[in-house]
Design a protein around this nucleic acid. Sequence first.
RNA 1: GGUUCCGUAGCUCAGUUGGAUAGAGCAACAGCCUUCUAAGCUGUGGGUCGCGCGUUCGAAUCGCGCCGGAAUCACCA
Length: 598
Amino acid sequence: MQLIDSILNKSVSDCILSLYGQSPDPRLIQLQKTRREFEGEITLVVFPLLKISRKTPDNTALDIGNYIQNNIPDIVRFNVVKGFLNLVVSDNYYLRFLNQASQDSMFGFTTVSGQDGAIMVEYSSPNTNKPLHLGHIRNILLGYSLSNILTAGGKKVIMTNIVNDRGIHICKSMLAWQKWGNGETPEKSGKKGDHLVGEYYVRFDQEYKKQVSLLVEKGMKKEEAEKKADLILEAQDMLRKWEAGDAEIMFLWKTMNSWVYKGFDETYRRLGVHFDKIYYESETWVHGKDVVLDGLAKNVLVRHEDGSVWADMRDQGLDEKVLLRSDGTSVYMTQDIGTAKLRQIDFSPQKMIYVVGNEQNYHFKVLAIILDMLGFPWAKTLHHLSYGMVELPEGKMKSREGTVVDADDLMDEMIATAQEMSQELGKLEGLDDGEKDNIFRIIGMGALKYYMLKVDPVKNMLFNPRESIDFDGNTGPFIQYTYTRIRSVFRKACEMKIFIPVSVKTDLQPNDKEKNLMRLVHDFPVIVSEAGNTYNPSLIANYVYDLVREYNQFYHEFSILKEENPEIRDMRLILSQVVADVTRKGMELLGIEMPERM
RNA sequence: GGUUCCGUAGCUCAGUUGGAUAGAGCAACAGCCUUCUAAGCUGUGGGUCGCGCGUUCGAAUCGCGCCGGAAUCACCA
């Protein structure tokens, strides 16, 4: 079924050509939704066309309106208000559309097309020295949701994760465990592995600070003390041993990392996300070095007198950037160069999207430039999906000040609150405990995910624990609630033996609310594709909310099951069904599960 | 200081390639449970879209300049 928008687009173009003898630039044809206060569904803005018509706005609109009305059967009327041509689409069109959408299980989605290469989405990217926190949750949800949206848009997506499992910060927690751990393991203490390792990282920092202040008391300057404290020297020594492959250190490293991975897996599982391919920096960090040395040989990069290797971007208004230290070791940028190349070798994706916080905007700008300098044609396919920080009402999260919101604790809290509120409302009586727990989990996680995703990624956002647990208004549970109520209508319809027909009659006359809902559903495929193109899950979230809010008003106004006219009742049931279907699909794109009851 | 991003109702956020009288929720107040689930619905109040200038038929949206906030500018990751 050809959608009315594209029919109109072509018709307006034809009209301008036949009336004014000129083919208009497609950008001049601006179709938009008609505002509530006017009659009609679709509005053509005629101002851009005045240069071609050389008539007043009203006369131009009248010309075009008459042409369209005569040529498109589905446009039944029109009216002109100050240069806006409001078109009334026939009820018949929307009812045909409704029939079609209700029978298309893939409505709104595009099936994977041809072999134009996969899109690689990198997200999460944790360090293995501490557990995941609220900032990671925003990252993970964005990355996973974006992957779903791209898939729905017909792309093949490879979800990837680069684990930062090596470096001085890892050695710090290893060292602290050696010194003060007494052989503690997750099994012995019952602690989650990533939390256990995180505790030793904190312990290191505490002891290190003590040492530094002791040295300062003895008259040493703070900067010097930070470099000469025994603990940091020991950690650096441990890093050297790690790089040399020292057996004991490697064993400890592998053991502690395995605890952390087990913990991360648990957190990922609860968040409902997964990866197709995980890279480890301990395996990829060496690759960048070769690429850099190759660039040096081709004179794309330069070596300074002390032996360090640099990329000179001064001709592009940027600075120089070090890629290999004077001792020949690689830096963060070098690792990312290597990882990017490795990914090209492994998958040759048509695009690589990095979901990384906006504090690294400069880093990714430089990364793309350097890869381009090095002559990789895929350098321009890199895209940094930058997102803002998550702030708390008290200000920024600071691990040192203990104001970090832990991911696991937060999920527990959300689920517990969902349980309290559900039990207060008492709607789940009669279900067994397993079913109830599953519903509490779905609601709590839905609240959290929706809260994080409804905000435009580019913006810093405020995480207010009290509000996030609120289930009223523009929230995940509100959407879930509306969905379950629609499902409940269907259960009742079955009990009453009202059979839903395969299609509704197209000579019905839907009321304003019904037509408005159909229009909203009509937009769904456009929203999915737009969210994919702009890498913005918040578009989906806000769309679903609009749809559901509209449905609630509709639901409140009409008693569907008590409707006496069976044809109207059928139409409302089918409309409800399509709304539920689109709502579920939209929420699934956000990674949010839907309960059957709540 | 340079660069990038953000600034919309008391609070949290929407607002499509520039379009008509800028929208929701929360909070406040007033209503609605004998209807398929009140986690809902209806109504009232609440705005110099940070400020100024410009571009044009038209600016929350584009450009320039200010003001406020954030990030970044390491031989850290």
